[in-house]
């Protein structure tokens, strides 16, 4: 790369021919979103690192020498002199196939069905996944658990078409604090969380933990184990803090 700017330097580039300011090295997708452009994406979240798994956020980038290429925008670094074209015929065509592939993985997901309808994805050409767990292997749950929560409870196992999101040995993982962050970020809502009888269960990972009861309201609010985990992690805090749900602390 003959880029002269250091990472983080302000650069000018274009979107559909119109000039914009950006920061060299920033995620192109995030920059596009910031400027109000709509680019669909399922595996990206600003809180975690870019991964490039779902291939939905395709754009066409024209470099300084006029060469065109199709690329995902989430992991493409904003750089000087490029022109980013959205919704070109190639982008539309490939995005449609990508969505068709994703829909075959999660045929029941309302989110995916809506997206597919919106992008005129033809139906019935691909055999949907027999086991259809509705997981599209976007890896968001794993990244949130590792990079944000720090619990490292979710593993990616195997490779190729055998790849799965799971816990080691498909067993209940004592590292899981049942915080529910993975449930929250999952784009196809295939992880699932249930609270009943003072317990919270993360359905997909088979993790059940008793909930702590708020001393103020008497209502269960979060897993006891999670509170202990953070008490230990943060250290030095008055442990009384954790006896109440956040609004009453």
């Amino acid at each position: 790369m003959s880029e002269q700017h250091p990472f983080g330097a302000p650069v000018t580039f274009r979107i559909g021919g119109r000039p914009y300011e950006g920061t060299y090295g920033d995620s192109l997708l995030e920059t596009l979103h910031r400027y109000g452009y709509e680019v669909p994406s399922l595996c990206h979240h600003e809180a975690v690192s870019a991964y490039g798994a779902c291939r939905l956020c395709l754009v066409e980038v024209v470099d300084k020498r006029g060469r065109h290429k199709i690329t995902t925008s989430c992991n493409f670094p904003v750089q000087a002199g490029i022109d980013v074209l959205l919704d070109t015929p190639d982008v539309v065509r490939h995005r449609r196939v990508v969505l068709e592939l994703l829909l075959a993985m999660a045929p029941r997901s309302p989110e995916l069905r809506a997206l597919a309808a919106e992008h005129d994805v033809p139906g019935g050409r691909l055999e949907p996944d027999e086991s259809a767990e509705d997981c599209i292997l976007c890896g968001l749950c794993e990244r949130v658990c590792r990079e944000v929560v720090g619990a490292n409870a979710i593993a990616m196992s195997a490779r190729g078409t055998a790849k799965r999101m799971t816990t080691p040995y498909d067993a209940e993982n004592p590292a899981c604090i049942a915080c529910g962050a993975c449930v929250y970020v999952c784009p196809t809502r295939c992880i699932g969380l249930e609270e009943a009888d003072g317990k919270r269960t993360i359905l997909r990972w088979g993790r059940t933990l008793p909930l702590a009861v708020c001393q103020q309201t008497g209502r269960a609010f979060t897993p006891q184990f999670l509170l202990e985990h953070y008490a230990k992690k943060l250290g030095g805090l008055d442990e009384k803090v954790f006896r109440k749900a956040p609004p009453y602390r």
Partner: peptide, 12 residues
């Protein structure tokens, strides 16, 4: 390192 990383490696 987390067991998840070791397990991921061993299955990859």
């Amino acid at each position: 390192v987390p067991l998840t990383r070791v397990y991921g490696m061993a299955t990859f």
